[in-house]
């Protein structure tokens, strides 16, 4: 291990301050990566703006103002107003709240689901493994977008109220998101459980739960962090696509996707770019930034990619 890291084994005399843990080491290498740092800053900025920004906006109440319809950017409306006279900047930030929350929550759900099922499948094997992995295969054979479309169409058919659609969309995204993750986790577990240190825990007579949560799971944490980060971007994108087609979160709840959809006609597209450029750019910047950061995280954390 020490040789593989390209570092000599540190003798205990080397002193506490220089002691390197896996995390300290990773953090240091991450900070040296400019793309990762800028990615992280963009994401952090986006979060801060979306969650704090609307508090300072005089237009946060979303009141329809017929006197101010479709105005171009000006001093009072920095990004102009939409067809109902609402401030675009405020709406973009409020939409960001929803989009980011949906992205985060569905990522959290799918990582939890995928990791749990993957660990159970890989550790206990046998019939449990077969059941879980065949279910995952089944979900993976159906392309996720059509699946989401059908689910979205059903939601509209059943007239689900707009405010609860947001939560249902989160769950939908998690359901299509977990199989790939479970596969990866299961693969890791299968190789980890045969490693000598896991055999050593058998010899020590540790019970299954302790081996699983105390010894296997910590080895997966880096992998899970990387997958989770990269998944947020994907989830935001999927949510935007769904909402763009009117099958995800529906107006009046704003999301980046349905804001672009509102400008989805020739006149708005050509004459009123302030309606669709801000939400479009937000999606683009957020997803790119998250992916850059996630990639860098993978470089420092995923042992498989380690040089």
């Amino acid at each position: 291990m020490s040789v593989a890291n390209g570092r000599l084994a540190v003798q205990p005399g080397a002193g506490r301050s220089k002691r390197s843990s896996i995390w300290g080491d990773a953090a240091r290498r991450l900070i040296r990566n400019k793309l990762a740092v800028s990615g992280f800053l963009v994401v952090a900025l986006m979060f801060a703006a979306c969650f704090l920004g609307p508090l300072f906006s005089p237009y946060a109440d979303n009141k329809i103002n017929m006197a101010q319809m479709n105005r171009p950017p000006s001093a009072s409306h920095w990004l102009g107003t939409d067809a109902l006279g609402r401030d675009v900047l405020t709406r973009v930030l409020q939409a960001g709240r929803i989009s980011l929350t949906v992205g985060l929550a569905s990522m959290g759900l799918s990582v939890a689901l995928g990791a749990l099922l993957g660990i159970v499948a890989g550790y206990y094997r046998g019939i449990v493994d077969q059941l879980i992995m065949r279910l995952a295969d089944l979900l993976l054979t159906i392309p996720s977008l059509p699946l989401l479309f059908i689910a979205g169409a059903l939601l509209s058919e059943w007239k689900v109220p707009p405010d609860s659609r947001m939560y249902i969309v989160m769950i939908m995204l998690a359901v299509v998101g977990w199989p790939g993750l479970a596969r990866m986790v299961r693969g890791q577990i299968l190789s980890l459980r045969e490693r000598e240190f896991m055999q050593a825990t058998t010899v020590l007579g540790l019970r299954g739960r302790r081996r699983l949560l105390g010894h296997l799971l910590p080895n997966l944490v880096p992998l899970l962090i990387v997958i989770a980060t990269l998944n947020i971007g994907g989830a935001i994108l999927s949510e935007s696509v769904l909402s763009f087609f009117g099958l995800g979160v529906t107006p009046p709840t704003p999301t980046w996707g349905n804001m672009i959809d509102a400008a989805n006609n020739m006149i708005d597209f050509e004459k009123r770019p302030w309606l669709w450029i801000p939400p479009g750019f937000s999606i683009f910047a957020t997803v790119i930034a998250i992916n850059l950061f996630g990639d860098a995280l993978r470089d420092v954390l995923d042992p498989k990619q380690r040089r």
Binding site: M1, S2, I22, R195, E196, F197, M198, Q199, A200, T201, G214, H215, P218, N219, V221
Partner: peptide
């Protein structure tokens, strides 16, 4: 093999 018998992340 003491190196591989200990969990690297604990």
């Amino acid at each position: 093999e003491p190196m591989s018998s200990l969990n690297p992340v604990l």
